[in-house]
Every structure is written in C-alpha cells, then in structure tokens.
Amino acid sequence: MSENAPSVASHEIGDVIIEMRNVEKSYGNYKVLRGINLSVSRGERIVICGPSGSGKSTLIRCLNQLEEHQAGEIIIDGTTVHGGLRGIDGIRREIGMVFQSFNLFPHLTVLENCTLAPTRVRGVSKAEAEATARTILERVHIPEQAQKYPIQLSGGQQQRVAIARSLCMSPKIMLFDEPTSALDPEMVSEVLDVMVELAESGMTMLVVTHEMGFASRVADRVIFMDAGEIVEVAHPTQFFNAPQSLRTKKFLGQVLHTQAG
C-alpha cells in the first residue's frame, strides 16, 4: 500500500464515544501510562504508534478493562469503567478486539469461533448467528473456510477470522493491537484491506500499528506515544510531513526507513 493511495472518503463523525481523562496505570512501581487524555468520537479512526514498551497495548487494553487502570477516568459510551465493574461484560461485548497473535479458539471451527459469543452472550439463535457469521466471513473474503479449524489456516486468514469473530458481535468500537505484526509480509495487505473496508463502513476504530501507509490512508488522527505519554496527536498529513516533536521525528525516521527497506 503506497502513501499516495487515495484516502478513505470523508465520513460522518458523531458524538464522543470514548473519553480518557488523566488515566494512569502502573505495574508495581513502574508507570506504564502517565496521565492519558484522549477523546474519540463515534466513527473516528485513530492510529496509535510509538516505540516498543511505550504503553500502546496497555492503553487500548484499558478501554475494555483487560487491564485495570489505577487513576483517572475512562468513559465508554456514557459508562465509566473501572476495575471490578460488575457490568463489564456488557461493555466488552460492544468493543471488538483483534490481537497480534490472533487468539482464535483452537478447539472450535471458524464458524463456531464466530457464532460462540453471539449465541452465548447476545442470545441470538444458532441459525441466525450462523447466517450472520457467513455474511461476515464473506466480507473478510474467506467464506469457504467456515468448517476448518484455525490451525488449518494461514496467518492472514486467521487474522481475518479474528476480525470476523469480533464483527459478529456488531460492536460499536473495534480495537486492533498490531494486527499485522505477526504476519508474513505477503499476508499483511489482505488483512489491511479488510480493515480499510471496515473503516469505510464507518466503524469507530483504534488501531495500534506501524503500517504508516494504512495510517495515512485511513486515520483521522495519528497518536504518537512514548514512555507512557501521548506525545503528539495530528492529522496524518501533518503527522508525516511536519511532525512537531523531536521524539516523533526520530521514531518516524526509524519506522519509515525500515518500511521502505
């Protein structure tokens, strides 16, 4: 994907759906998030990048409380989430998440992976869930793999199933944590294409990735993180062409260098 590729058509941006205020998180004495402030609107596409260990994963994992934050506020679609929240399952089912290592359920077929949560959590009938799943598998271009087990698929196919599995819950927000980092280079684009299509459909997306081509094409804002802080937030054009901080420049220099090579 080149940086000159046409960017995704302009789209509606609605009310605020994610609000982070002064969010702090530490492991023991080690602060991983140092006062994160971020507000995301419905339909917005945000790309988060930054060096390894800067807290990108931790940030998005706090949104659905796979990690608990210790200070500050996180409000998801009007509900304040925190550790030990009773209704957290209800919040999580509105937030899809795609992981670097796919995390498909190995003992279930592709179709079962996709229908499990809708039937169990949403109480959808099996037939209806399967019909939805097949439609969505078609959307991620693997309708023919429905009866296979994850281990029988390539990495790119597995990641697309993982996306489909999340989409089957018709979430309001999709989180991606380096979805293409574990893939062989030739499989990266098939996953990114699916993500671009998803962006075109108006999904609210937070994507941790170093795929700068994807960022410039899809993102409404790019966020650069370093050492647990948000260092820079900018529209991709400005982010790539006129980065403000030194740390961003240095990081971009490294990333763009390796991606060109």
Binding site: R61, N64, L66, D89, G90, I91, R92, R93, E94, I95, G96, M97, F99, N103, L104, F105, L116, A117, R120, V121, A162, R165, S166, M169, L175
Partner: peptide, 8 residues
Amino acid sequence: DAAKSLGL
C-alpha cells in the same frame, strides 16, 4: 483475553 473481549 479473547474470551473476555467478546464479553463472555
């Protein structure tokens, strides 16, 4: 992680 994120 995957199971929780699906809201199970």
